[in-house]
Design a binder for these strands. Structure first.
Length: 439
RNA sequence: GGGGGCGUGGUGUAGUGGUUUAACAUGCGGCCCUGUCAAGGCCGAGAUCGCGGGUUCAAAUCCCGUCGCUCCCGCCA
């Protein structure tokens, strides 16, 4: 018999079905037994009149919470049943895997353990429907992004994660032995997606892992995370990239709202707002004026930059002024940007770059790239980089390369903002941090 | 790397010098229950209060150290 998802049972009234899932509750009474069975799609009550099948009843009595179970039975309408007005009259039950007692924690209790303990027992944590929902939303988000890219002529690429030289300056590198030499884990696909531009691929995207050896202990950092990257050719400025990004995010938010909006509200308590376009844009100089107006004092070493508190303050100002959760901070000074960001012809100290701040959290960095090899090489030198390790990269731009730009967007940070989660660890299947390599 | 906070049964919390034999909720085990309601009732097991040292007649409680976790900063997505 084919398996019926619990959410589809209403279409099988009067039929005998097979349902497979976890035993969430067993109410073992004198004459009746009730099982609440859970699969990824929902919950259903399974009932057995003990005298009708004493042998089966005895087996059911031995079952433990969270046992993996296959049952068959007849679906009947029963308005008395509070769980959807239907139940299954149990006919057979097969224990696929009896759950040991007791569980490290009860995933259906009113209070949950600290996040670190939940990460130790993540597979149990993930059995909670509200946590599973995060990954349903992730699936829809990635589907929507791919749809949008494909509609716009993008190619999907997969760049290597083992590299012979760093892909960005600044961020810490994971180094590993490589056949008697050294290799590094990719911090970003930056160089390779630009190579794809030089290859004439026109527009590319990649959703893949990125590694940063930063000993960061915050609610928004991971040493391994999934990066959403894209790069597009023949742009006139970074504004073309921002326009693409905001429209793409609006598309993805709309898809998520259409498919999961009600469930998100019910299980996570978040009323998903599809952002309007265009997103507000604030050049960095203006952001600083605003911070001055609202008396936010930046740390003295921050010059043209923003600290996280400043980002949150600007985001709040934007929220009050424009009622918008997103804001592009543009035109960052060269001191705080990498060498490959293009600079304004008439303002050589300002880059044609942007960050996207969502609900006060930095989720994206993007820019128009410098595609003129002589200028690029000069900027690398200025930043103190020697050309030898990046010669292969500089070569990309020697034999004809269109003007281009792109961005990197943190998948889990996006989900964190979208679903109003308070920690990025909630939005990733298995968290990796300085002190977390298992499970 | 720097700073703040927190470590009490499986889990979440209360208790912040002295009848504390460490409490409550939940989970776990047992029994009961005319079809229950992500039940209800009764009974039971389960914690040397992170670890080490110190102060004191007396420490879960105060002090020092240490470890773990967490959040913030730095850095970033």
């Amino acid at each position: 018999m084919e398996r019926t998802p619990i959410s589809a049972l209403k279409g099988h009234i009067g039929q005998t079905v097979k349902v497979q899932g976890f035993l969430q509750t067993l109410r073992d009474q004198k004459k009746m037994q009730f099982i609440v069975l859970r699969d990824l799609t929902g919950l259903v009550q399974v009932a057995l009149w003990k005298e009708g099948n004493p042998t089966l009843a005895e087996e059911i009595s031995r079952l433990t919470t969270e046992t993996a179970l296959t049952i068959t039975g007849k679906v009947v309408e029963n308005p008395v049943v509070k769980l959807g007005g239907i139940e299954i009259q149990l006919e057979t039950a097969e224990t696929d895997s009896l759950a040991a007692q007791q569980l490290p924690f009860d995933p259906f209790a009113d209070t949950m353990p600290a996040i670190d303990f939940r990460m130790d027992w993540r597979f149990i944590d993930l059995r909670r429907p509200e946590i599973a929902l995060i990954f349903k939303v992730q699936t829809t988000t990635e589907m929507a992004l791919r749809e949008y890219w494909i509609q716009n002529g993008f190619l999907e690429i997969h760049t290597p994660k083992l590299m012979g030289s760093p892909s960005e300056s600044g961020a810490e590198l994971f180094e590993l032995p490589y056949f008697g030499g050294k290799a590094y884990l990719a911090q970003s696909p930056q160089f390779y997606k630009q190579m794809a531009m030089a290859a004439g691929f026109d527009r590319v995207f990649e959703i893949g892992p990125a590694f940063r050896a930063d000993p960061s202990f915050t609610s928004r950092h991971m040493t391994e995370f999934t990066s959403i990257d894209m790069e597009m050719s023949w742009i006139e400025s970074h504004d073309d990239v921002m326009r693409f990004l905001e429209n793409m995010l609006q598309y993805a938010y709309q898809k998520v709202k259409d498919i999961h909006g009600e469930e998100i509200k019910a299980l996570l308590g978040t009323d998903l707002q599809v952002p309007t376009v265009p997103f507000p844009r604030l050049p960095m100089a203006e952001a600083h004026k605003i911070l001055k107006e609202i008396n936010y004092v930046l740390p003295p070493d921050k010059k043209g930059d923003l600290d996280p508190g400043g980002e949150r303050a600007v985001a709040q100002w934007v929220k009050e002024k424009y009622n918008h959760d997103f804001v592009f901070i543009t035109d960052w000074p060269i001191e705080v940007r990498p060498f490959y960001h293009m600079r304004y012809a008439d303002q050589p100290n300002i880059t044609k770059s942007f960050d996207l701040i969502a609900s006060g959290l930095e989720i994206t960095t993007g820019a128009q790239r410098e595609h003129r090899v002589d200028i690029l090489a000069k900027q690398a030198t200025e930043k103190g980089l020697t050309h030898d390790p990046i010669r292969f990269y500089l070569d990309f731009f020697r034999y004809g390369c269109p003007p281009h730009g792109g961005f990197g967007l943190g998948l889990s940070r996006l989900l964190m903002v979208m679903l109003n989660l308070n920690n990025v660890r909630e939005a990733v299947l298995l968290f990796r941090g300085p002190n977390r390599l298992n499970p």
